[in-house]
């Protein structure tokens, strides 16, 4: 996995609440047996219905690395394809006032940072609507920083996952390294 330390970027705003993973990537696109090239299917139904602005949502992906979305982002199906699509499209950070549990873990396992922000910060980001506003994400200090308006907010993620992201470690390697603990557990039952 790629290391994640600090990131500065513009953001894309999607104010809809309860964006479920069926919207992020409709089921008809889950038939691939690979992990690549899902970006072109991101929000494909909404895109085809003209619900997404073509300028803000270019066909070939975005240079904005941050997506700011309405509450309960990523609810519904556990499909990791949703994260593969977001990441392939260009997003490396998701900010929302509530992010679904399975989605959050899937994101972290793919080097995408799901950050739960306050209602106040969310409102603020809507108000700014990206006008000359770069957002900074510092995983080391666990802060979302809006330099231009002098705003900062702390966030929390799992300590283990933070270590993994900062160092580019992967969960499987760690678990393989503790095989003896796992075998001991099995024997002790």
């Amino acid at each position: 996995m790629e290391k994640f330390e600090r990131l500065i970027s513009n953001y894309t705003l999607l104010e809809t609440e309860n964006i479920d993973t069926d919207q992020i990537i409709p089921a008809v696109h889950l038939k691939s047996i690979e992990r690549i090239n899902f970006g072109k299917y991101l929000f494909s139904n909404w895109r085809n219905e003209g619900k997404l602005d073509e300028i803000e949502w270019p066909r070939n992906g975005t240079t904005n690395k941050v997506l700011v979305a309405g509450s309960n982002f990523g609810c519904g199906s556990s499909r990791e394809h949703a994260v593969w699509a977001l990441s392939d499209y260009g997003f490396k950070v998701i900010l929302s006032t509530q992010i679904a549990d399975i989605f959050s873990l899937n994101a972290l396992n793919n080097g995408v940072l799901p950050i739960k922000i306050s209602e106040e910060l969310y409102r603020h980001l809507i108000k700014l609507n990206n006008t000359n506003c770069q957002i900074e994400i510092d995983l080391e200090t666990q802060e979302v920083i809006l330099d231009s308006v002098g705003k900062k907010e702390k966030f929390k993620i799992s300590e283990f996952k933070r270590e993994c992201l900062l160092n580019g470690f992967d969960t499987i390697d760690y678990l393989v390294s503790i095989y003896s603990d796992i075998e001991n557990y099995e024997q002790a039952r």
């Binding site: 499909r79 990791e80 994260v83 399975i102 873990l105 499987i172 678990l175 393989v176 503790i178």
Partner: peptide, 19 residues
């Protein structure tokens, strides 16, 4: 509980998840 594909792989590899 439901898990994503990366965690399916961790279960294959170790019969464990980190949660």
């Amino acid at each position: 509980f439901g898990i994503g594909t990366s965690e399916v792989a961790t279960v294959f590899a170790s019969q464990c998840v980190i949660q």
